[in-house]
Amino acid sequence: MKSEYSGAQLTALVALRFAIGWHFFYEGVSKAVNAYWTSAGFLEQSQGFLSEWFVDLASNPSTLAVVDFLNVWGLVLVGLGLMLGGLTRTAACFGILMLILYYLATPPWPGFVYAIPAEGAYLIINKTFIELCALLVTLFFPTGKIIGLDRLVRLARARGSVQESYA
């Protein structure tokens, strides 16, 4: 057998995928266990061209509840998918979508100042953006079917096809 990736490449890619997954997962879990957590504060300080929409979401208690729920469990599921390599591509796609929303809610663009201080100094590129780029890498250099649950799925499918062809 032979992988197109060298051992070092594969290790690096799986490590990257796992690390992003862990970050998502733990962000989700820590919010899920905090009864007081809500995205309201984050959404409320939204700036940029989508800010009105984000603030609207936060202002209505029912939409806020939906957003909070989807955010928490989206983080957990994306995290699990990336870490375990199951539905890896889907997890990466949703992860990217979430990161785009986070980025656009509070973009670090010139002229925007936020009440919640960042822990570093950012202009245009922030850690969310970098995580987004990293997730693009894991999407286009996939490893789930090499190291991950997707491997079993794929093998099972391949086996099914073979049996079909014998039939």
Binding site: E4, L87, T90, L97, I146, D150
Partner: peptide, 27 residues
């Protein structure tokens, strides 16, 4: 978006995972 995804994009997306030229050797 997330709800739509749950409706049916999961499998499609996953099936497509092997599309990358680099991944053919993963078996």
């Amino acid at each position: 978006e997330i709800r739509n995804g749950d409706d049916g994009t999961l499998d499609d997306a996953d099936n497509a995972e092997g599309d990358s030229p680099l991944e053919s050797g993963d078996l």
